[in-house]
């Protein structure tokens, strides 16, 4: 869906649902997911429909993911960090993640 115009920024190793992904410094979680070709980042709590980042400006809350164990983080506002663990959020996330 997206490609990088320039390979600027140092590589940052993250995992998404256990899979290793190379992001770049300056990426947000949502941007890293988009460029990695992830088809969705969560399913909705009401009907379980798949959702992917939509607005990338903190408004829509469709890029909610679990970051380092904390659920419902807005992926478009969280910068990637070396070793970060990202999980797709399924429906109502588990309490206490």
């Amino acid at each position: 869906m997206f490609k990088r115009l320039a390979e600027a920024g140092a590589p940052v190793a993250i995992t998404v649902d256990g899979k290793a992904i190379s992001a770049r410094a300056g990426d947000t979680v949502a941007a890293a997911l988009l460029v990695a070709g992830i088809d969705h980042c969560r399913t909705t709590p009401v009907t379980g429909a798949p959702r992917a980042p939509y607005c990338l400006m903190g408004v829509c809350f469709d890029c909610l993911v679990t970051v380092d164990g904390v659920g419902s983080r807005q992926g478009c506002l969280v910068p990637v960090r070396e070793g970060m663990t990202i999980e797709t959020q399924l429906g109502k996330r588990e309490a206490g993640r």
């Binding site: 164990g69 904390v70 659920g71 309490a95 206490g96």
Partner: peptide, 8 residues
Amino acid sequence: FPAMRAAT
């Protein structure tokens, strides 16, 4: 309710 700590 420790389970609630990360609830939003």
